[in-house]
């Protein structure tokens, strides 16, 4: 089977890759481009561990084909920190002990980032519903919710 040539943007960089039409974006990111920060938890769009954004929309990369990335702009966890400066959400996740094993963290951070881009002042309930597509089996979610709400507060403070 001949591979398709795809030109896309990943974390602000122009990227070209070859992939089979059946390969998911998740497979391309992990196995072809070695961006293994995006995790596979289920492969069926139920756990959110593979969450990335495509043109700023939250997507389960296991449900998105690699070839669909043509001409799009993708953000993965590897693009969240700016150089050596962690994103506020990343900092708050460690301060609040919002990760234990950390496997859900990349997807959870991307999902939280898209929430705060759309709603800079979410309630606890809105945060819980927004993140309900991202499974965490370790924390019971307490610390994740606290971290997101705290990050939102700091980001609002920085803007005002």
């Amino acid at each position: 089977m001949s591979k398709q040539h795809v030109t896309t943007q990943i974390n602000g960089n122009s990227v070209e890759f070859l992939c089979e039409t059946r390969q998911t974006l998740l497979e391309v990111l992990r196995d072809e481009l070695h961006l293994t920060g995006t995790k596979e938890g289920c492969g069926t769009g139920d756990c959110g561990a593979c969450t990335v954004t495509v043109d700023s929309k939250m997507v389960c990369s296991c449900l998105f084909l690699g070839v669909e990335a043509e001409g799009k702009s993708i953000q993965t966890i590897e693009g969240m920190a700016q150089g050596d400066k962690l994103h506020v959400l990343q900092r708050k996740f460690t301060e609040h002990a919002a990760l234990q094993c950390g496997i859900c963290t990349p997807g959870m951070l991307i999902a939280a980032q898209t929430l705060l881009e759309r709603n800079p002042d979410p309630t606890e309930e809105q945060t819980r519903y927004w993140l309900s597509g991202n499974l965490c089996r370790c924390t019971g979610y307490n610390q994740i919710i606290h971290a997101v709400l705290d990050a939102a507060k700091e980001l609002r403070g920085a803007k005002s």
Partner: peptide
């Protein structure tokens, strides 16, 4: 071990 897990470089 927090930062590698937050930035996606930790190896699972």
């Amino acid at each position: 071990d927090g930062v590698p897990k937050l930035t996606g470089t930790a190896q699972y």
